[in-house]
Simulated assay, not measured.
Amino acid sequence: MSTRRVRARPGEGNRLREEILRAAEQLLIEAGTEDALTLRAVARQAGVTTPSVYLHFADKEALVEAVCLRAWDELGNRMRAAAEGVADPFAALGRRGHAYVRFALDHPVQYRILMMRQNGCESTSQASSACFQYIVDAVATCVHAGVLRGTPETLALGLWSAVHGCASLLIAQPAFPWPEDLDAWIYDVIAMAGYGAALSSRVPRKTRPSSRELTTELDRLKTRFTADRA
């Protein structure tokens, strides 16, 4: 049973807010859904009165969003750390994509609430903007290096669709028989999206190659790479 804490002294408001957020985060993760998260339950978990929670959060929705946004700085840190020491910008882009999906899987409840809900809100917009900008920054490096061609924002939208789709499916369909080596499969999905973007950004829309032409050219490329590495 939680112990009632004494009233916070002046200047301790931020600490109390943090304690409330930690308590709410624990409850959210344990329940797996925001439906079980009530301000009364959070107050009980944090050892404070329900009015104390209302002093920091106007309602349940505000508390849930604040809890979810706590994790979002970690996403940026993970994506930057994943590319540290990787000189090849295209390889660094792949590492960042993998870090994105892994972040979503490590924080499935927060990711689902902020990135998979139909009704958008200010916090959802904040989370989406942050995700998008992380990917734009990585793509811009590839455009500068010449491996991708086009506007970073436009290219990033396509690649974001790939990593978000991968993460969303894994979160929404946990019982699906996914490959045993999940990390390898995630890298394969990211590779397909990345190589597809590199190829697509070089082929004008009005002159898309036929299946036969594409097969011939790709087989030539495969032969050349195989010979170079033999």
Results as ranks from 00 to 15, higher is better:
Asn14Asp: 15
Thr38Lys: 05
Asp73Gln: 00
Glu30Thr: 15
Ala175Thr: 08
Leu93Glu: 01
Arg40Trp: 10
Arg102Tyr: 08
Gly120Phe: 02
Leu148Trp: 05
Ile186Phe: 06
Trp160Ser: 08
Trp72Glu: 03
Val6Phe: 15
Arg4Gln: 13
Asp188Met: 12
Thr151Cys: 04
Arg112Asp: 14
Thr49Phe: 12
Ala145Lys: 04
Arg202Cys: 01
Arg102Phe: 10
Asn77Val: 00
Lys60Leu: 05
Leu63Lys: 11
Arg208Phe: 02
Glu213His: 00
Thr226Asn: 15
Thr124His: 02
Arg15His: 15
Asp59Leu: 10
Leu39Tyr: 07
Ala156Pro: 07
Gly76Cys: 02
Arg40Phe: 09
Arg70Thr: 06
Leu221Lys: 06
Asp219Pro: 05
Met115Thr: 08
Thr33Pro: 13
Gly146Leu: 03
Val143Ile: 04
Phe132Lys: 03
Cys166Pro: 08
Ser125Lys: 12
Ala66Asn: 04
Ala8Asn: 08
Val109Tyr: 11
Ser2Thr: 03
Lys222Gln: 10
Gln45Trp: 03
Asp59Met: 12
Ser125Asp: 08
Cys131Tyr: 12
Gly146Glu: 05
Asn77Ile: 01
Ser52Glu: 12
Gln45Phe: 05
His98Leu: 02
Arg70Phe: 01
Tyr111Leu: 13
Glu61Arg: 11
Arg229Glu: 07
Glu61Tyr: 11
Ser123Asn: 12
Arg102Val: 07
Ala127Lys: 00
Leu21Met: 15
Ser125Thr: 07
Arg208Ser: 00
Glu180Thr: 01
Ala92Tyr: 09
Leu69Tyr: 03
Arg205Cys: 10
Pro108Asn: 06
Gln26Asn: 11
Asp228Val: 14
Leu55Lys: 09
Leu75Gly: 02
Glu217Cys: 03
Glu34Gln: 04
Gly97Pro: 09
Pro152Gly: 01
Ala66Ser: 09
Ser168Asn: 11
Arg40Ile: 13
